[in-house]
Design a protein around this nucleic acid. Structure first.
Lengths: 298, 298
DNA sequence: TACTATCGATAGGCGTTTCCTATGGAACTG
DNA sequence: CAGTTCCATAGGAAACGCCTATCGATAGTA
């Protein structure tokens, strides 16, 4: 057994695709196939089922995957002995753009107060990137919105929050306490780009309720969406946490009557990767801080 | 970093000698030197100090050694996924010949009752072999007599026991309850081969008290020594646990007056190696069983 | 049913790596 | 001070991993 074989196998198991796994490992696909075959031969068991179009883990493969990930994470850690990074613990957090600026700052502040020595880095990117970062070991923990269904990830729900209707302050509907879905039917919308999971979630929510929004314009940033709403370009849906930081009087936020659109915020990390104690400390901080701050909001 | 480099490094660190490490790894010494140099280069730090005659671990080397051993033990475990040995836990115990037959059977019986699925193997050999087996990972746990001073081993004392004077039943000294060292001065002795730590311990005990024994004959087995004593070939020292199983009326055992010779029995295992839960269970069984059985003897 | 795209396995040549033997130089030992 | 032990270096041979090209199989589509 060699480390490269473990790396190739884990990549193939994660991506369920030899070609893309080879790409990620920076080698040609036959090399990866060859090494995985060699690994299986040395173990005397098939680890991956290539019969179908998609690659799947066999039972022995599942067993082995867990150990392989553990080994590779320890190797990662051991390699940092040289750079003196062992004494200086490291925390790499990923979060999606519709969560990061609202949720992270207070949590990171509290965390750094207790873990002054830690070297913290934050990655802000779309869900797919955060997920693959956690799987590949580039990130220690990710903060995203559900659903997440990647097998090797441990998903821990933090809280659910409502998506509020954002209106220009002078909009007729702003006078009401609650807004109905029907009332939104003919309104122009300013939506978040569908690259964001939040943007996509809102569109599919509207489709389900058979009131496809008349999209007036789209933006890639929640803050921009809020500004455009304030300028009267249209309505939008905005998560509670983004309302909390909005001090402008140009916009008001209203609950939707009936089944409210919600999103669930969760933290994710690799189920088998061995993590530094610092990472567990951050997860605790995040979990605790959110419970209290959610309680405060209510 | 490659696994082979870790294997070479750990071997060199364990044996504190490149030449013998290479031998253990089944390669020529320059290959091992080369790979270790490469590992150090990739980490950017020196792991082994070769300035003196003996190889010594640097500070970074100590750090790295711990992780390397952990990784290699996980690799060992992962390699057993193939042979289905993961479902069937494994226990490999080593013990020295002057302990094994007296101490192990009841402990193994109790252990197997609780861990029926476990595949137990017992190795009976001299201290040096048990020690190197534990260091090399061929044994999960060893049972030996102190002193043991190999750095990577965790040593846990189990109990101390007296070495009794074994006499032929008809010997004049058998009439006394206690025997003095002076009285042994002119007696012929039947001793255990010095290859055994017990044999060596007894000789050095006698030398310290300036009553070098007149060795009549030596044997490689404690049981044989007892038989020879029974036949009147001479006196000997025998640990308490070997007396307990001696049902013959040909021999009697007496305490020595004054500072009694004692030996300390301990279990040892590799400080950093990751062990299956089964091994911890065995250690607990051994620890508990010995406390009670020692209490019973007193 | 046939066509096409996707995907992993196989074949053969190339370059790198690791390993070996032989030898050199430094550090303890008698 | 000679002898021994032990790690490092040098250079050639064997082995290994990787690459490109190509094949066969599977699954979706006309």
């Amino acid at each position: 057994m060699e480390l490269q074989q473990l790396r190739y196998f884990v990549a193939a198991a994660d991506l369920r695709n030899f070609t893309r796994a080879a790409e990620r490992c920076g080698v040609a696909q036959p090399s990866l196939s060859q090494q995985i075959a060699k690994l299986e031969q040395s173990l005397g068991k098939t680890l991956l089922d290539r019969s179908g179009r998609r690659v799947a883990l066999t039972d022995a493969g599942e067993e082995f995957y867990e150990r392989a990930v553990k080994i590779l994470s320890l190797v990662d850690e051991a390699e940092r002995v040289g750079s003196g990074a062992v004494e200086r613990p490291r925390l790499r957090v990923g979060a999606i753009p519709t969560i990061a600026p609202y949720l992270l700052p207070p949590v990171l502040k509290e965390f750094s107060a207790k873990n002054a020595a830690a070297e913290v880095s934050v990655v802000e990117d779309l869900t797919a990137e955060i997920v693959s970062g956690c799987i590949a070991g580039d990130l220690d923990v990710g903060i995203v919105a559900l659903p997440i269904d990647d097998a090797p990830l441990h998903v821990e729900q933090l809280f659910r929050e409502e998506l509020l209707v954002a209106l220009p302050a002078r909009h007729p509907l702003a006078k009401k306490n609650r807004v109905t879905a029907a009332e939104l039917a003919r309104e122009p919308f300013v939506l978040l780009s569908e690259a964001h999971c939040l943007g996509e979630q809102i569109v599919s929510y509207c489709r389900q309720r058979e009131c496809p929004p008349r999209v007036h314009c789209r933006s890639g940033q929640l803050l921009t969406v809020q500004e455009l709403v304030g300028l009267g370009y249209g309505l939008s849906f905005v998560p509670e946490m983004a309302r909390a930081t909005d001090r402008s009087k140009l916009r008001v936020y209203r609950s939707l009557a009936g089944a409210k659109p919600m999103r669930t915020v969760a933290m994710i990390w690799h189920r088998f990767r061995v993590q530094q104690p610092t990472v567990a400390a951050f997860r605790e901080t995040l979990k605790k801080s959110r419970t209290t701050s959610v309680a405060n909001e209510k």
